Amino acid sequence: MTKSELIALLASRTTQLAQKDTELTVKTILDAMTTALANGQRIEIRGFGSFSLSTRSSRVGRNPRSGEQVLVPAKQVPHFKAGKELRERVDNAFLAQQNVN
């Protein structure tokens, strides 16, 4: 699902908000999450999952064209861990799909 598909789905479910208001709401939530992660904070959404930062240490990589060694610096990357409820719902949907086939 893309961001525009999410906005369209939420707008169709919520008659009180116009499409522009729904778009602003989704953008505001995603911006707040991005800012929190950029500031090193952890985000937890009960029943859905948590976002945190993982540190990747520096390493030596290779340039695929020339084959020469390149130093890849250490960096912080976002990490998502699904919550128990989300894992169970996805697993149950998968099992139900398997039983249909």
Rank of each mutant, 00 (worst) to 15 (best):
L10W: 00
S12F: 07
R13W: 02
R13T: 10
T15E: 15
T15L: 13
T15M: 14
T15C: 04
L17H: 02
L17V: 09
A18E: 09
A18M: 13
Q19E: 11
Q19I: 02
D21G: 03
T22Y: 02
T22S: 08
E23I: 05
E23W: 02
L24A: 14
K27W: 06
K27R: 14
T28R: 15
I29G: 02
L30D: 06
D31V: 03
D31G: 09
D31R: 10
D31C: 10
A32W: 05
A32Y: 04
T34Y: 10
T35P: 06
A36Y: 05
L37C: 02
A38S: 13
A38M: 06
N39A: 05
N39P: 04
G40Q: 08
Q41F: 00
R42D: 08
R42W: 10
E44K: 12
I45Y: 00
I45S: 07
I45Q: 01
R46H: 06
R46V: 07
R46S: 11
G47Q: 03
G47A: 13
F48H: 05
F48E: 10
F48S: 02
F48Q: 11
G49W: 04
F51Y: 08
F51S: 11
L53V: 05
L53S: 01
S54Q: 14
S54V: 07
S57N: 15
S58E: 07
R59E: 03
R59V: 05
V60W: 04
G61P: 06
G61K: 03
R62D: 01
N63S: 08
N63Y: 03
R65V: 02
R65T: 05
S66K: 09
S66T: 15
S66I: 03
G67V: 01
G67L: 02
Q69P: 11
Q69S: 07
V70W: 05
V70H: 00
V70E: 08
V72E: 01
V72C: 00
V72S: 04
V72D: 01
P73W: 00
A74N: 07
A74E: 06
A74H: 00
